[in-house]
């Protein structure tokens, strides 16, 4: 009786107060189920499938897929294209963000818009642009043939297409960061007698390093995984102009599933490493904001 009284008396107080922003339990459950279910169905399951398929014929077949000379050539070409386009975009990204955030000049907003162009344009179109410019029938085609330069269906074309598709990544990361930081620290460095080079390396770079690193990781992942633009300009010459994603396609079309998935698993692994690095960088960055690390 006593207990009943207490519970009745207390009940209006004990009942958890629902905050305005807190949804009912079934709404939360539904949303979580939808989100996680979607993630599982469209991301986790395919990712697992890649590795399962890759190892279906055993580890020996898996590693044999990489021993093949065409696969090795594809890996080499991918590394080469990435190795050229990522540093190029790194330099471009830093220069563009510096220009956009530290000076005012005519055409600034046009530059900001143009940086986003590769995001807006379908990669296939990006590839086609280069074919139209440098292909045999293109604007510079006759001149290139005359001087025996090969761009389309050759390595330079692949590098160009990769660079084009990936050039927003670094700049997009740096512009908001540098805008937020302003240029007072650089001005302070200048009044203290630092020249432009010292100011850049000792003040600007340490302030943007995590943003820069993040941009480079994303740029790298996209450069290695790019399919559309590269496919248009590559010509699919085995052992010569095939990158990893193109190699996967060829193997798959030849019903060589185990090898196709083995190579695909390499790219998937790259994605996982990228995600890991990304989280690591975000964590580092958050930490350095809270309490600057002594790493500098």
């Amino acid at each position: 009786m006593a207990a009943g009284t207490i519970s009745r008396l207390d009940s209006p107080l004990v009942r958890p107060v629902r905050r305005a922003t807190q949804d009912r339990w079934w709404v939360r459950a539904l949303l979580l189920t939808v989100a996680l279910g979607f993630l599982g169905l469209f991301l986790i399951v395919p990712l697992v499938a890649v590795f399962v398929e890759a190892f279906r014929k055993g580890a020996a077949a898996y590693f044999a897929a990489f021993a093949e000379s065409d696969a090795r050539a594809a890996i080499k070409l991918t590394l080469l294209a990435t190795g050229i386009s990522v540093p190029l975009n790194l330099v471009f990204g830093v220069a563009a963000s510096w220009a956009i955030t530290k000076f005012s000049f005519p055409g600034k907003s046009l530059l900001i818009t143009l940086i986003d162009l590769p995001f807006a344009v379908s990669p296939v179109i990006s590839g086609l642009i280069y074919v139209l410019m440098f292909g045999a029938q293109g604007w510079f085609g006759p001149w290139l043939i005359e001087h025996d330069y090969k761009i389309i269906f050759a390595v330079p074309g692949i590098v160009l297409a990769t660079t084009f598709v990936t050039f927003p990544f670094v700049a997009r990361e740096l512009i908001p960061l540098m805008q937020a930081q302003g240029s007072e620290e650089e001005q302070a460095a200048i009044t203290l007698g630092a020249n432009g080079w010292q100011t850049f390396w000792r003040v600007t770079v340490p302030n943007i390093k995590w943003g820069l690193f993040y941009g480079v990781i994303l740029c790298n992942a996209r450069a290695m995984g790019e399919f559309g633009a590269v496919s248009v300009v590559s010509g699919h010459i085995r052992g010569e102009t095939n990158t990893l994603p193109l190699h996967v396609e060829i193997l798959y079309n030849e019903y060589n599933y185990a090898a196709a998935f083995a190579v695909a698993s390499l790219l998937a692994l790259l994605a996982l490493v990228t995600l890991f690095l990304k989280s690591f960088v975000e964590w580092q960055h958050a930490r350095s904001r809270r309490e600057p690390s002594s790493s500098s």
Partner: peptide
């Protein structure tokens, strides 16, 4: 020059901030 919002180098310690002008 002392800036209104100080413009201290945020990735450096107090010591390194003060030493900056001499180190460069």
């Amino acid at each position: 020059f002392v800036f209104q919002h100080y413009a201290l180098f945020r990735h450096m310690t107090v010591f390194d901030n003060v030493a900056f002008g001499l180190k460069v």
